[in-house]
Write a protein that binds this DNA or RNA. Structure first.
Ligand SMILES: [Zn+2]
Ligand SMILES: [Zn+2]
Ligand SMILES: [Zn+2]
Ligand SMILES: [Zn+2]
Lengths: 142, 142
DNA sequence: ATTGACCTTAGAGTTGACTCTAAGCTTATA
DNA sequence: TATAAGCTTAGAGTCAACTCTAAGGTCAAT
């Protein structure tokens, strides 16, 4: 049975974050000492590590809640439910990637066009480009 | 001289957002009617379009404030100041791109491994992978 | 017995960029 | 002239995921 700071070291989450996740139903301490201290069993640790893994991949806390409920009762859930969540996340990631790639290209193009020197910016092609409005549009969809 | 809703149509920003940007020093209405209505000159429109362009590229409102002050007095600023901001933004974009690409790969790998079918999830390789913790790590740096 | 490190809680604060509300003027159209 | 559409303000609310604070209780070691 680990104390919260030990679980924190193990997972790389802060104790604050662990309590925060508990409040949102993601992590549990199966035991409490008489004084109220949280104690985490092996199963609790596994669960916390599951949460951390899902978080690392980029799943939202809400998604993780659903994934946890599937993990907890695999019999009552299908692979399709799991792939639905995963595919949806991938779609989000791809959409954001496309936006960022457009931004990247625009920024690179702007950097190439500007001399970057110490002289004054009266001739600056970046300022000109922004003034002209001839920059590619790529704004957040979500 | 345009009213705020006309500027909104022109820029694609909402009137709310235009007022919000004004509060943050990004957009100005050079005239007000006796009743207090904002009126935007051609120069104001250009400025608003500059802001919109910079926003489209992904610059933060703070960055845009700096870019505007350079635009306003090009004599006193250098191309280097402009490229510094641009390069810094590009660095951010590249860092986030790397994270998202890792997420993308992991999600794709997970999706390939799962049958996605309607049968129950007792054998689900996605849940297994999250349980095992063998997922690539790619979390936000900023 | 006294440090000092660790734990508890409820709840407030942070970030960035909006987004909306309420209450009340103003202006344009019919 | 009445109705609707549009404008004003200050200020509150939203989102996600933390992050921190205050005030106090607990525990291990000296
Ligand atoms: Zn130059
Ligand atoms: Zn330049
Ligand atoms: Zn399956
Ligand atoms: Zn599966």
């Amino acid at each position: 049975m680990l104390k919260i700071s030990e679980l924190a070291v193990l997972t790389g989450l802060s104790a604050h974050t662990i309590r925060f996740y508990e409040k949102h139903g993601l992590i549990e301490a199966s035991k409490r000492s008489d004084s109220g201290y949280r104690y985490y069993s092996d199963a609790d640790v596994k669960r916390a590590e599951f949460v951390k893994s899902a978080r690392n991949i980029g799943f939202s806390l809400d998604d993780i809640g659903v994934l946890l409920s599937i993990r907890l009762d695999k019999q009552s859930h299908s692979c399709q439910e799991v792939t639905d969540i995963t595919q949806h996340k991938l779609d989000e990631v791809n959409a954001r990637l496309a936006e960022l790639q457009t931004m990247q290209q625009t920024l690179e193009r702007l950097l190439e066009s500007c001399c970057g020197g110490p002289e004054n910016a009266t001739h600056c092609s970046i300022i000109e480009a922004l003034d002209g409005g001839d920059v590619t549009v790529a704004r957040r969809a979500s």
